[in-house]
Amino acid sequence: MNHDQVNPSRPPIGAVGGRPSFRLHAVSFGFGRGETAVQFPVLKNISITIAAGEVLGILGPNGSGKSTLLKVLMRIVTPQRGTVELFGQPHGSFSQVEIARRVAFVPQETQQAFPFTINEMVLMGRYPHHNRTWGLGWEGDQDRAVAMQAMRELDVAHLGTRLITDVSSGERQRAVIARALAQDPDVLLLDEPTAFLDLHHQLDIARILRRFNRERGLTVILVSHDLNLASQSCDRLLLLQEGEIVTAGTPEEVMSKESLEPVYGCQVLIDQHPQSGLPRVTLPV
């Protein structure tokens, strides 16, 4: 299903607001090889344009292909069909390092069996900027400064010398987001960024992402189960069901009974957030 064609009256998704960061055309992807991959696609015929500088939330029930879509954008997996463009050039024309200088990825969960310090973890974000022809990729003052500021932003600077294996999962998650910011990307992809975080740090992350978006034009693409977080912090929402785009649009357009209830298969109540006036979802008792 080509979403651009379903709503011919609307301009192509994401065409508003500047040049596109990503443009996907008829992308289908399945895990496995050959026939299996084609028979059981996780993503079906996804076409969407994501503007540079927008905050896009990807929503959908379990197994709807949200995380897989992020992996396609990061080129962790390559779709069997369709084309992906990054800033107007084919995805395949970039080397892995060139992509990593523009796009950073925060996975759902990071497991680490080895005793790296938080400092070392965050500095790993500087890897794509290292000189790889000679030496062992030693970090310079610039790298350390960037990492330090990213750690301050994410409130993990005081944990610098602690081991990643010893801190709580929320602290680890914040360190991973700091690492992604240290990567100095144009686009930040986040898979359930707030899953392990307490309320205070959830709010922090949402604000930080918003601020980086406003000040530096960072494009933010996040997958979330938290409909309200997505509604409050995203310019645009994308609702997926079984690998297909059901709706895409502003929070007001997507967060409606008509689009949410059939996708999630349950009743929802929609009202307005008392402060922002944006739609808010609650479950009936």
């Binding site: 607001g17 540079a52 800033f87 200088r101 523009r102 400064a145 960037v146 910011l181 000040e215 645009r236």
Partner: peptide, 27 residues
């Protein structure tokens, strides 16, 4: 939709720069 602001960093696609941080230093 996010609006363009003067402080937005320009995105260089064709000539990747390896070392500088557009993010943290001058913005």
């Amino acid at each position: 939709m996010a609006s363009l602001t003067p402080s937005r960093k320009t995105i260089e696609v064709t000539t990747p720069t390896a070392s500088t941080s557009a993010f943290f230093s001058p913005a």
